[in-house]
């Protein structure tokens, strides 16, 4: 199972978008805790061993020791910078997690994680994927088979049956990590943590520049002085103006992806 070491209280500069993190307030997210708890239950129900993995600098080992204290059997840290992309993280984790029956992850981390590492991981491992699950059901007589439930739009739910090998990401609210025993905490302090290096990754495409959302400035004519203050604001913000009608485009996947990126650039989400 995978854990991500992330600052729970980062400082974000409102002007530059620069993020300052602090190792003291960094830990695993609630979703990763939930994934760890499901992993511990799987091992209790099916037998086997739980390997916990994270990617990051040495300070990230704190999340591994927490997992070891709670009952994980082995721990491995993929030595990567905290700025590694999801693809790089997944590649590093996949090399060490190959052969696992089930890989559990949190669905997204507190640092505005996109939840893409589990998807990359499933692709790397050629495993079935069940992403964003709320509840898992584990049958002791059917080891390796995970029955999962996840949300759909409109309040509906979807039930999945996943057979190993599978990558499952879970929401943080589905369960709560058990409290580690004192003996577990003391043993985890001294437990060995394997350190592995990440394989080199050739980017499949030029990296996108990602920055804080900055709507493009648009010049608009000054509203008429005859209007009330409220009406002038509405004119300036374009609130009542007619918007372009929604379009339904049917495109090839590559063209559709380009179109989406163009639109995100237009809106200012991508630089």
């Amino acid at each position: 199972m995978c854990q991500k070491w992330v600052d729970h209280r980062p400082e974000v500069d409102p002007l530059t978008g620069a993020v300052t993190t602090d190792p003291r307030t960094s830990a695993a997210s609630a979703a990763d805790h939930a994934a760890l708890e499901w992993g511990l239950r799987m091992v209790e129900g099916w037998g086997g061993e739980l390997l916990v993995a994270t990617a990051g600098p040495a300070a990230a080992e704190v999340v591994l020791r927490e997992a070891l204290a709670a009952g994980a059997h082995h721990a491995v840290r993929i030595d990567l910078e905290a700025t590694a992309t999801s693809e790089e993280v997944a590649a590093g984790l996949a090399e060490r997690l190959a052969g696992a029956d089930v890989v559990l992850c949190g669905d997204w981390s507190l640092d505005r994680g996109s939840g893409s590492v589990p998807a990359f991981l499933a692709a790397q491992l050629a495993a079935a994927s069940g992403l964003g699950c709320t509840v898992l059901a584990l049958d002791p007589d059917r080891p390796g088979e995970v029955r999962a439930e996840r949300r759909l739009d409109g309040g509906r739910r979807e039930r999945l049956v996943l057979e190993s090998p599978a990558v499952v990401s879970v929401e943080g609210g589905g369960t709560r990590l058990r409290r580690a025993s004192l003996a577990g905490v003391l043993q985890a302090r001294e437990a060995a943590v394997e350190v592995a290096s990440a394989p080199p990754l050739t980017p499949s495409r030029p990296p996108l520049r990602i920055g804080p959302y900055r709507p493009r400035p648009r010049s608009r004519p000054a509203p008429s002085a005859e209007l009330t203050a409220r009406e002038r604001i509405l004119v300036l913000t374009g609130t009542p103006a007619d918007r372009p009608p929604p379009q339904l485009l049917v495109l090839e996947p590559a063209a559709a992806a380009d179109r989406i990126l163009d639109q995100l650039r237009t809106w200012g989400y991508l630089l």
Partner: peptide, 9 residues
């Protein structure tokens, strides 16, 4: 006594 399981020191 601590708040952890088997938490007596």
């Amino acid at each position: 006594r601590t708040d952890r399981p088997q938490g007596d020191l």
